[in-house]
């Protein structure tokens, strides 16, 4: 990590880093910032492309007023928060349990196998996770109801009822992202210095005490990172839910990205959708700031 200061020499001038950075920065500017500015302009216009004859007049803050007084927008944000609060505790608890199982000495082969299989859900195409969900949670021939039947529970119309559909997308999200939490916690557990852990194991036979007093401090950065990244991911979540439920039935799974997509590309009200998207961007920027503030301190 040597910070080599620029020296007056060939190719060591003040502008050398700029030459290396320029292509990436210009590209990101062109594909990231410029469209965002365009969205900002659009958000001040009435912009329904199914009615081009009306033109796209500037209407000031009208779209923002529409969005902020739109109860569907708020309930969609609320539902997204509810989804986040449903999946997060399950993923943290299961993820920690899996990490502890993988950290425990012994069971070499089986452990390596489990460690490797964790990568599979993470890599599975999100849209395909949705396709699998449609198959597993089918009311008639879905395997989820077969499992329920084994436990003596009556079949559920998973994707046809609001509560069932919400539960189904929670389960698929838990399946896909629990391994992410497990791997982060596992990385934290392996940071505990070996001799400290050994000494603590001799001191106490209580696993809980070990976890609470020795391992927990090493797990905290990972936990923070999980909470922040998952919140950004849930705000982004589209593919899996879109394929499984399209936001329905009714608005039972109408998460924020699904809702904005519908306003923009089904109703084609791009002015309102842009205003919604920019509000979403503001939330995301706050989350990113938090992430950097809490987790990148050592980088700078």
């Amino acid at each position: 990590m040597s910070a080599s200061p620029a020296k007056p020499n060939r190719g060591y001038g003040r502008w050398t880093p700029a030459w290396f950075l320029a292509p990436a920065v210009l590209t990101l500017f062109l594909i990231g910032i410029y469209p965002t500015l365009f969205a900002l302009v659009t958000s001040f216009r009435r912009y329904n492309i199914t009615r081009p004859r009306d033109g796209f007049p500037f209407v000031g803050l009208e779209n923002y007023v529409t969005v902020l007084t739109d109860s569907t927008f708020w309930s969609s944000l609320f539902l997204t928060a509810q989804f986040y609060l449903s999946v997060l505790p399950i993923q943290i608890v299961l993820g920690l349990a899996i990490a502890l199982l993988l950290h425990k000495p012994g069971m070499g082969m089986l452990k390596s196998l489990a460690r490797v299989t964790l990568v599979v859900p993470l890599a599975t195409t999100y849209a395909v996770v949705g396709l699998i969900g449609r198959l597993i949670f089918n009311r008639e021939f879905g395997v989820a109801n077969q499992f329920l039947d084994l436990m003596g529970i009556a079949p559920i119309d998973w994707l046809g009822t609001p509560a069932g559909a919400f539960a189904a997308i929670v389960i698929m999200d838990v399946w896909q992202w629990t391994p992410f939490c497990a791997l982060i916690f596992l990385a934290g557990l392996s940071m505990v210095p070996g001799e400290i852990e050994e000494a603590a194991r001799l001191e106490t036979s209580s696993k809980l005490a070990l976890l609470r007093y020795v391992q927990l401090p090493y797990l905290m950065p990972g936990l923070t990172s999980i909470m922040i990244l998952r919140s950004a991911d849930v705000l982004k979540l589209f593919d899996m839910v879109f394929v499984m439920t399209r936001g329905g039935p009714g608005s039972a799974t109408d998460l924020i990205s699904i809702y904005i997509q519908r306003v923009g590309f089904r109703i084609f009200d791009l002015g309102t959708a842009s205003a919604q998207a920019l509000l979403l961007l503001v939330i995301t920027i706050i989350i990113s700031r938090l992430y950097i503030r809490l987790l990148y301190r050592e980088v700078h």
Binding site: P35, L281, S288, Y291
Partner: peptide, 19 residues
């Protein structure tokens, strides 16, 4: 760079579609 990783694709999908 990091906020680009966090941003929902829908934010850019709307203007990029129009452009």
């Amino acid at each position: 760079f990091i906020s680009n990783r966090m941003t929902s694709p829908i934010v850019l999908a709307l203007p990029v579609y129009l452009l």
